[in-house]
């Protein structure tokens, strides 16, 4: 497993992403600039960290989608390569059309910055066990997932709703939804083999007991295990 973390101007969660991959999960990890036009050839996983790429100008992720590196990421994703977008990374993936839907202003207008629980509601490379409940922090003002009713139905039917906001015991209820996301969606799968995951919570900020918990590590361990040749 070789991971590549993409650096856009204005992101701020790259150090934790690199630390999680390299020091916690033991994955060889490179960083690549937004101006590059190719990914390192050995790349298995592309990780797009959170933050405020290009100052969130126009819309979150709107400017990043035309960065030179995006074509290489799109080609990697279409070939079935793993892509993880966290927070602003999720917003970039929806703006680039690699995941459906859009992330809009939180229902309550607040920037929500606290721990949440999410429940695995679809299995895939990053979430192997249905029903798992993970505690992870969120930190966003625009995380309310929106899509047309048809898209939401397809996501559900195709088992692409990876994570939903829930209570600590795994009940998906409105009171556990921090931003008004449709169907309590916290993360979705895309790509030809669910190889793309976008999520608003920050697994890299909860991957080591030093950070107050390590539920987020399960997501990274899962994709590392998934990438192992049988």
């Amino acid at each position: 497993m070789h991971a590549t973390v993409v650096l856009f101007p204005g992101i701020n969660a790259d150090a934790e992403m690199v630390r999680t991959l390299r020091d916690v999960c033991g994955v060889t990890t490179d960083c690549v600039s937004h101006t590059a036009t190719e990914l390192p050839r050995s790349t298995d996983l592309v990780a797009i960290p959170g933050g405020f790429s290009y100052g969130d100008y126009l819309r979150c992720g709107a400017i990043a989608k035309v960065a030179p590196i995006l074509d290489a990421i799109a080609a990697h994703a279409k070939n079935g390569g793993y892509v993880l977008g966290v927070c602003n990374g999720f917003q970039i993936l929806t703006e680039a059309g690699l995941l459906p839907g859009a992330l809009t202003r939180n229902e309550n207008l607040h920037f929500r910055c606290h721990d949440v629980f999410v429940k695995v509601t679809a299995t895939g490379p990053f979430s192997p066990t249905l029903g798992d409940v993970w505690r992870m922090p969120i930190a966003h003002g625009e995380g309310r997932y929106q899509a047309s009713p048809e898209v939401l139905e397809d996501l559900e039917d195709e088992g692409r709703i990876a994570l939903r906001y829930s209570t600590a015991t795994g009940d998906v209820i409105d009171a556990a939804n921090p931003n008004g996301s449709a169907m309590g969606i916290a993360g979705i799968y895309g790509g030809p083999r669910k190889n793309i995951l976008g999520l608003m919570p920050h697994p890299e900020r909860m991957s080591d007991l030093l950070q107050g918990g390590d539920d987020g590590r399960r997501l990274f361990d899962a994709v590392v295990a998934h990438a192992q040749p049988l």
């Binding site: 126009l58 819309r59 709107a62 035309v66 929806t94 839907g101 859009a102 929106q146 899509a147 047309s148």
Partner: peptide, 8 residues
Amino acid sequence: EMLANPVI
């Protein structure tokens, strides 16, 4: 392609 997001 840029100024608006047709999804929303």
